[in-house]
Design a protein around this nucleic acid. Structure first.
Length: 913
RNA sequence: GGGCGAAUAGCUCAGCGGUUCAGAGCGCCUGCCUUACACGCAGGAAGUCGGGGGUUCGAAUCCCUCUUCGCCCACCA
């Protein structure tokens, strides 16, 4: 593209040229957004108002360490649109914001800071470390909430919460102790997911499976009696050090010669039995499975069934060996040359050693799922340990049953099956984490009498014997606090006013990734502790991806910083693209390499609104008569048309928003503002705005103000800044009136005229046909033409006559005949109900071209008519199709026949072959 | 290995039983400083609605199947 020097010139030239229009021709979001936001806040717009029916959304609390990414942007803008819409509808809106202490994530960040100083958390000690995290949190903590303000989120900041607030902590503790008392919390000794990097246990949901190409190693275990060997297959040969049996399916004939015998475990030199167990899949590998009860969940179950020992052969940090203090009988399983090696190094070494001894049969490449830590991506190690678990079945069942009764729903609906399956097949929830940052587990043990209990308050001593007590060193899973978010934020366990008013809430907007991690658990806790759903609708958003459909992520470098977008194009532009570009639950594809193309539509739209406003405001007197005081008889066809369109926009946009179709709502309002109001009505109405001031002018002003006001209100939830800025400039606004705090428009049927609608459409079509002919004949824009319109159909020429001036002006005509008088040789177009326009071309007419055009139009019409004829003569159609469909088709046929006869008449007149 | 979703103009997406439903935005082509806007106005070109079967009076729209992508779930070591 060439540099648009002329464009820039025009732009500069225009600036400030028209003294009636004091506003600059380009909207500058950076100049107004911050001030507008501040004004909203100062006026308390975001707090729930009045005694109206509440509407509540709790914001998914972002991690403190997070900075705003475009996924947050999408999420929160959706919430803000819903919130602003309901606020304008008069609901007492509560959008509760806050942050999550995010145990592992936050602890990791601070540990990295320490590492930069060459220290570990163990160097500084628990107390100092936790203080250090608090310090970090206070310093950098709520940046993300500031960023949400930048993109316009109208949360109730007066109720901002943090999942480690003292009040919130009381709720967490109450929940733990209650579950303890109900017998739903227990100490489990089993194999859990262990992150050797974060040094903590993880829940099933926190250990994410990822497809990996690994190797399947076939290893020979010699029989203890020297009579042969069995071969086992494994992906993790290093775990062989902890093997305590080899199992084979009881029905597998290959197993029978070996059952009851013992094999000598290579490298370790201990004898282990060959046993039968039905969990073995004979089709996989060799049919013989090595059993490592301490390092594999299913092996642990096998081990339990057969009373096998479960030696740990790996330390918490993933190196080979035993932690200090393990029982002696387990020691010695790790050969000296393996001791201390990292597990993956050990794997290589062990494979080498086995190969050297001729015990490695073969190695196959193998696709399998490896679980990784959701915070640091380290391969998780299954590890036998003692952890606290929540019995999930008693919590999940009522929540699932309520879902199936329809007490709450998930949109889009397609998540139903996934959700139900998951809820029905949950395993107990491991809630203890070997971290320091988080809610300390309120379990106490008497060091004298071994009494162990959970307590709501820190006990001075053992309640049984008065002996000294110690508290469990672990903290709770971060999700064990966030699952209380919909009520702990409102003061639970106290029966506070807020709780009574704002629970249950209404809509929860979040990413599908945390449907299981978070959403499902909130539902469970809601039913369990309050006996009621936490919200009525779960809105699962799509994922923001790049043009290659990859998830945006820091590591891929394909992210978009929403604040960059705000800086370049304004918050409204960001919001527009996110909302208009994503239908319910669908992924949003954005191009990080072309922000201009991605976000310019929103910027352009804001600018369009700006200029509509600029124009209208320059025309208006200080006092404009309200539309309801304008006598209907003074309204022109165009007036009645645009008023109808305005009310149509109100009606459809409201319905779409109620159905969570935010994109459709946004697009309908866009079309009203741009394509209907600006492209047509503003152009049509211009001559009536002159200084003469009569009744027509008064009506025009009233219609303009009503329509523009309506457009701004309808668009406000999506693009709050530009609409607020303009709305305040409308005549009659008090200095302290805010669009954000005003009412959503309601449909006013007395302003609608569904006859005017098609009539004005005919006028538009006539103008478009004339313009089209002008372009086809390459007639200079300034050339004034003569044209005639021959109206057919119901109202004859009334609608054309009433907008005669409009047609003359917008079609650049010098003369328009409406009485059927011929205008000489010209170009024809037939449209709608058979009405036709003829543009006089004084000798310039190209008969052949006319014939071509009209013939092709006739052909198209004939095709359509043929299709219709088939339909309408089909008895099945006439009898089976809905009556209104049939009637519509009949009416269509009538109009097309009319068109057709006019067209053929023209063709004959022109003498076309 | 199960389940789900997507495939429509060059790009990003709407439409999900009824010929003005083949659309929008961006991009592209032609004009244009027209009483707000060149971040604009006017006029255009552009798609056998992934392939193949079927159901129906009628399918982009429903069913089956194939292909290609993406997601979720899963203890086959």
């Amino acid at each position: 593209m060439p540099p648009h020097s002329s464009r820039r010139f025009v732009s500069e030239y225009n600036k400030g040229m028209d003294p009636r229009i004091p506003l600059p021709p380009q909207y500058d979001p950076s100049g107004v957004e911050a001030a507008l936001y501040q004004r909203w806040q100062e006026r308390g717009t975001f707090a729930p108002r009045g005694d109206g029916e509440p509407y509540v959304i709790v914001m998914p609390p972002p991690n403190l360490t997070a900075i705003l990414h475009v996924g947050h942007g999408l999420n929160n803008v959706i919430q803000d649109v819903l919130i602003r819409f309901e606020r304008m509808r008069g609901r007492a809106v509560e959008w509760l914001p806050g942050t999550d202490h995010a145990g592992i994530a936050t602890q990791n960040v601070v540990e990295r800071l320490l590492a930069a100083e060459g220290k570990t958390r163990f160097d500084v000690g628990r107390e100092a470390f936790v203080e250090r995290v608090w310090q970090f949190v206070r310093e950098t903590g709520a940046t993300i909430l500031e960023q949400l303000r930048v993109i316009g989120c109208s949360s109730d900041w007066s109720r901002t919460r943090f999942t480690l607030d003292p009040a919130y902590s009381r709720a967490v503790r109450e929940v733990f102790v209650t579950l303890w008392e109900e017998g739903l919390i227990y100490r489990g000794h089993r194999v859990i997911h262990w992150c050797p990097h974060c040094l903590t246990a993880l829940s099933d949901e926190e250990a994410e499976a990822s497809e990996t190409t690994g190797s399947l190693y076939y290893i020979r275990y010699p029989l203890a009696d020297g009579s042969g060997a069995v071969t086992v297959a494994t992906t993790r040969p290093e775990t062989m050090l902890g093997d305590t049996a080899v199992v084979v399916h009881p029905d597998d004939p290959r197993g029978s010669p070996y059952l009851g015998k013992r094999v000598r475990l290579p490298l370790v030199n201990v004898e282990i039995p060959v046993l039968a167990d039905a969990s073995v899949d004979p089709k996989f590998g060799t049919g013989f499975v090595k059993v490592t009860p301490a390092h594999d969940a299913s092996d642990f179950e096998i081990g339990t069934r057969h009373h096998l020992p479960a030696p740990l052969i790996m330390r918490a940090d993933g190196t080979m060996g035993q932690e200090p203090g393990v029982e002696k009988r387990e020691a010695g399983r790790v050969p000296p040359e393996i001791q201390g090696l990292d597990r993956f190094e050990a794997r290589k070494k062990i494979v080498q050693l086995l190969e050297a001894q001729g015990l490695l049969v073969k190695v196959e490449t193998h696709q399998h799922a490896v679980r990784r830590c959701y915070r640091c991506d380290t391969v998780v190690e299954p590890r036998l340990s003692d952890q606290w678990f929540v019995k999930i079945q008693p919590l999940a069942e009522p929540a699932l049953a309520a879902y199936q009764r329809g007490e709450y729903r998930i949109v889009p609906e397609r998540w139903k099956a996934t959700y139900e399956n998951w809820m029905a097949s949950l395993r107990d929830w491991n809630i203890s984490r070997q971290l320091w940052w988080g809610h300390r587990i309120p379990v106490f043990t008497c060091s004298r009498c071994d009494h162990r209990w959970a307590d709501r308050a820190d006990p001075p001593g053992c309640p049984k014997c008065g002996g000294p007590v110690t508290q469990d060193p672990d903290v709770l899973d971060t999700w064990f606090s966030s699952w209380l978010w919909p009520f702990a934020t409102f003061g639970w366990p106290q029966l506070s006013d807020d709780l009574q008013r704002f629970y249950p809430g209404h809509t929860l907007v979040t990413a599908p990734e945390i449907l299981f991690l978070w959403v499902s658990r909130m539902v469970m806790s809601g039913y369990h502790f309050l006996g009621e759903k936490p919200f009525t609708t779960v809105y699962l958003t799509g994922t923001v991806r790049d043009t290659q459909h990859r998830k945006m992520s820091k590591s891929l470098g394909n992210g978009i910083d929403p604040l960059d977008v705000v800086r370049l194009y304004g918050a409204d532009a960001l919001r527009w693209t996110l909302i208009a570009g994503s239908s319910l639950g669908a992924d949003v594809i954005l191009d990080p390499n072309d922000l201009e193309t991605t976000f310019a539509p929103g910027r352009n739209f804001a600018n369009k609104l700006w200029n509509i406003g600029r124009f209208i405001l320059a025309q208006l007197p200080a006092n404009v008569t309200p539309i309801e005081r304008i006598d209907r008889s003074r309204l022109t066809l165009a007036d009645r048309w645009i008023l109808t369109r305005a009310n149509h926009a109100i009606w459809t946009a409201t319905r779409y928003l109620e159905q969570f179709r935010l994109d459709e709502a946004a697009k309908r309002c866009f079309a009203f503002a741009w394509n209907e109001l600006a492209d047509w009505y503003v152009e049509v109405v211009k001559p009536r705005l002159g200084a003469q001031g009569g009744a027509s002018t008064e009506a025009a002003h009233a219609v303009l103000v009503y329509c523009f006001d309506t457009a701004l209100r309808l668009l406000h939830p999506v693009v709050p800044f530009i609409t607020e800025e303009l709305w305040q400039k409308l005549p009659g606004r008090g200095a302290d009136e805010l669009l954000a705090g005003s009412e959503w428009p309601t449909r006013r049927q007395e302003l609608e005229d569904y006859d005017a609608d098609p009539q004005f459409e005919r006028v538009k079509t006539a103008i478009e046909r004339i313009r089209s002919i002008r372009a086809e004949y390459r007639i200079a824009p300034k050339t004034r033409l003569r044209a005639a319109i021959v109206a057919r159909g119901g109202d004859r020429s009334e609608s054309f006559a009433s907008e005669r001036e409009t047609i003359l002006r917008l079609a650049q005509l010098e003369e328009l005949s409406l009485d059927g008088a011929p205008v000489g040789a010209g170009a024809h177009a037939v449209f709608g109900d058979g009405s036709e326009v003829v543009v006089a071309l004084a000798g310039a007419v190209d008969v052949q071209q006319e014939c071509r055009r009209l013939t092709s139009e006739l052909q198209r019409l004939d095709q359509q008519l043929a299709g219709l004829a088939v339909k309408l003569t089909n008895e099945n159609f006439v009898s089976r199709a809905p009556a209104d469909v049939v009637a519509r088709e009949r009416e269509k046929e009538r109009m097309w026949r009319e068109q057709r006869s006019v067209l053929t008449g023209k063709l004959t007149a022109l003498g076309c072959g």
